[in-house]
Simulated scan of single mutants.
Amino acid sequence: MKSSLFIAVALTALILPSAAFAQHAGHEGHGQSTETASPAPVNADDPHTGHGSMDHSAMDEDVSPGPLSETSAPPEAGSGPPRAADKIWGTDVMAHARHKEHGKHGNFPVLWVQADRFEAQLRQGNDGFLWDLQGYYGNPTSKLWLKSEGEGEFGEGVEDAEIQALWSKAVDPFWDLQLGVRQDVAGPSTTHAVVGLQGLAPYMFEVDAALFLSHRGDVTARIEGELEQRITQRLIVQPRAELVLSAQDLPQLDIGSGIDKVELGVRLRYEIIREFAPYVGVEQTWHVGNGADFRRAKGKDPSTTNYVVGIRFWF
């Protein structure tokens, strides 16, 4: 009796799990046969069988194949007329529409004026002052520039001053070629033809280089460079360098041939608003070569340290 009961229980334990598995497989296969094939061996180097032999084809059906798998443009693409819309709307209408859209995307005139340096210079002896103003009116590729720069001593008046009027043309996305005239309005009256290059060098260095030919045939050059580094959103440190060169001695202007002046400085400014920023700084100027001798002959110091306080603004 006990052996018969044991056999019945054992058969039930074998039959019930098999039946449950068969029923579950029928639901998973939506009525398909419950017979299964032996799994294929997994090759980890095979992209179709690696990663647990998972079949991702069903998962990727709704995913974009990406730009490398998309169908290339047909051969006839771009073979039509370049101004096909002109035949529908007319040449005049489309020319006006293109000009209007061009203007909306940056090709419109802009007026911009900036005082890059407008400062008092505190130094041993007589304190001085300096201004460096520039501005332009024009579009991104063609502008009229006006520049003015000068310096002097308090109580002594203006020592050097100049005004430049330049036509500027973009020759590269970050560089403008400038042609024009410079007039010295303090010291010996001199008119110069100007050829310059102004723009943004690698690592965000702002460069302004110019070659001057005076009406007397004198050739001089000036290269200025500066870099703005933000410490915070409003606090900015600005190193600056200037180099003045001459092809000949100009005793009447205290300029010597070769490298005449080297100027290095740094300014720290705080932007109260973006358009208005007071600053403090220090600047060292060296006159070298014959230029230093000309200055000594007139009782001037060829080397000067200036502590500067000023305002930088633009609109």
Rank of each mutant, 00 (worst) to 15 (best):
S148A: 10
S148C: 08
E149W: 11
E149T: 08
E149P: 00
G152A: 02
F154K: 06
F154A: 06
G155I: 09
G155F: 04
E156F: 11
G157W: 08
V158N: 04
D160H: 07
D160T: 06
D160F: 08
D160R: 10
Q164K: 11
A165Q: 11
A165L: 15
A165D: 04
A165W: 05
S168H: 03
K169H: 15
V171L: 02
P173A: 10
F174P: 03
W175E: 02
D176Y: 10
Q178M: 13
Q178V: 12
V181Y: 03
R182K: 14
R182H: 02
R182M: 04
Q183G: 10
V185E: 03
A186H: 00
G187Y: 00
P188G: 01
T190P: 00
H192S: 14
V194K: 01
V194P: 00
V194W: 01
V194G: 00
V195L: 14
V195M: 14
G196Y: 00
G196T: 03
G196Q: 03
L197Q: 03
L197W: 02
L200P: 04
L200R: 12
A201P: 11
A201I: 12
P202H: 01
Y203L: 15
M204A: 10
M204T: 12
V207T: 13
D208V: 13
D208F: 13
A209C: 09
A209V: 15
A210V: 11
L211W: 07
L213D: 06
L213K: 04
S214P: 01
H215P: 05
R216I: 11
R216Y: 13
V219P: 06
V219N: 09
R222W: 07
I223T: 08
G225P: 04
G225R: 02
E226R: 12
L227E: 08
L227T: 11
E228H: 11
Q229N: 10
Q229M: 14
R230L: 15
R230W: 09
Q233F: 03
R234P: 14
R234E: 09
L235Q: 07
I236E: 07
V237H: 00
Q238G: 05
P239V: 12
P239H: 04
R240E: 13
R240D: 10
A241T: 14
E242A: 15
E242Y: 03
L243R: 03
V244N: 15
V244E: 15
S246P: 13
A247C: 08
P251D: 13
G256C: 08
G256A: 10
G258H: 05
